[in-house]
Each structure stands twice: as structure tokens, then as C-alpha cells.
């Protein structure tokens, strides 16, 4: 399973390296979202700083949608889904590989967006350790749930429009929890927000969707 996961992740990342869809489309989109928020809230810079964590994770969430759609589009070429099913690859490995590739792209994007938040919103970077842990765990959840719902929507003709409808409500807990923990990290430990319980929620979400994906991806790939 792990060998197959590495193989699939390597393939997806190599495709991204050649096509540069994430670099040329997803990243500019995410930066644009941050800039638009800055325009909208600039008259009251205090609001922008206070809302920075939430705005950051909304931008990440929208970008995750695009990354998941791109990940599934890779497999929607002529006959590639059949070839994948015939390949002998462990479906659990395919799931982990595809989720892993999405996660790697999102992590890079999150670092760049974090720099954008510091520059555009004037946020003082603090609590970097907690931010890093939040980013890792939230990204695992986003990538796992996104890959799972991506393969569910893949077989449908209206997949491009249906996927956001399916996925955004599911990812709402990640958005809320990651925002709360990020607020704590940015404002220091004195904020009084129970970051630990939100972090537990993020970990639980990621573990649940990774586990569910490992089990369910095979049958879903068959039906897609």
C-alpha cells in the first residue's frame, strides 16, 4: 500500500510539475482571495488583523477545492480510470497517494499564503510551532476528505459544480477548528481559546477521513 501510495503521489506531483496548474492557477486564485479581503476590509485594519486567521483558512479551503478538482481531473483522461483499476495498484495506496499529492501542494500554498497574510494584513507572525502543527493536521483532513469526495463526484456529469456543494459543508469543521487554533497561535496563549480541543477535532477529522478513505476508496473507484 505504501509503495503504491508513493508511486501515485510521485506521478501526480510530476504531472503538476509539468502542467503547473497549481502554480499558475490555484496559487494566484488564493492570493487574489486574500487581496480582495484586504480591499474589502482595509478601511478598518483592526478588523482585517482580527479576521486574518479566518480569511486565511477560507482562502485555503477554496484553494483545496481547486486542488481536489485538479487531482480528479488527472484521472478523467480517456481510459485512465480503467487503466488505474487494471493496474494492480492497491486502491488504498491510490487514495493515500492522491491525498498525499494534494496535501503537499496545499502545504506549499499555505506557506506562501501565510507570507501573504503577514505582508498584506500586517499580521505579526507568532506561535509558529502551533501554526505549523495546525497546518499539517488541517491539511491532512482537507486532502483526505477532498480526495474521498472527489472520487464520489468523479463519475457524475455535474461533478465540477457538485463537488463544492458536497465538500464545503463537510470541511466546515476543519475551517472552524483551524481558524480557532490559528487565532490562538497568532494572539499568544493568553487568548483563552481552548486550542487543544480544536486541535483534537482537527486530528480526529483527519484520522477519520484517512481511515474511511483507505477502506472506501476501492469500491468508490469501481463505481466512478
Amino acid at each position: 500500500m505504501w509503495r503504491d501510495a508513493l508511486l501515485v503521489a510521485g506521478k501526480d506531483l510530476r504531472i503538476e510539475g509539468r502542467s503547473r496548474v497549481a502554480l499558475n492557477q490555484v496559487l494566484p486564485f488564493a492570493v487574489l482571495v486574500l487581496v480582495l479581503f484586504a480591499f474589502a476590509l482595509d478601511p478598518d485594519r483592526g478588523v482585517l488583523v482580527r479576521a486574518a486567521a479566518g480569511l486565511y483558512w477560507v482562502a485555503v479551503l477554496f484553494s483545496a477545492l481547486l486542488a481536489v478538482q485538479r487531482s480528479q481531473a488527472i484521472e478523467s483522461g480517456e481510459g485512465t480510470r480503467d487503466a488505474l483499476r487494471l493496474s494492480g495498484l492497491d486502491p488504498a495506496g491510490v487514495f493515500l497517494g492522491k491525498a498525499g499529492a494534494v496535501a503537499v501542494q496545499l502545504l506549499v500554498l499555505e506557506v506562501l499564503l501565510g507570507l501573504g497574510v503577514v505582508v498584506l494584513y500586517g499580521v505579526e507572525p507568532a506561535g509558529l510551532g502551533l501554526l505549523a502543527v495546525t497546518g499539517l493536521v488541517a491539511t491532512a483532513g482537507l486532502a483526505a476528505a477532498g480526495t474521498l469526495y472527489g472520487v464520489i463526484a468523479a463519475g457524475l456529469r455535474v461533478r465540477e459544480t457538485l463537488l463544492p456543494l458536497l465538500l464545503l459543508p463537510v470541511l466546515a469543521p476543519v475551517l472552524i477548528a483551524a481558524t480557532r487554533v490559528s487565532e490562538t497561535a497568532l494572539s499568544g496563549a493568553s487568548a483563552g481559546v481552548p486550542a487543544g480541543s480544536w486541535l483534537v477535532l482537527l486530528v480526529t477529522f483527519a484520522v477519520l477521513y484517512l481511515g474511511f478513505g483507505v477502506v472506501a476508496f476501492g469500491p468508490l473507484l469501481e463505481d466512478g
Partner: peptide, 9 residues
Amino acid sequence: STGGLYDDL
């Protein structure tokens, strides 16, 4: 009839 190949690879 379809190749099962990745266009970007």
C-alpha cells in the same frame, strides 16, 4: 479504444 495515458506526463 482509449489509451489510458496521462496527457501531461
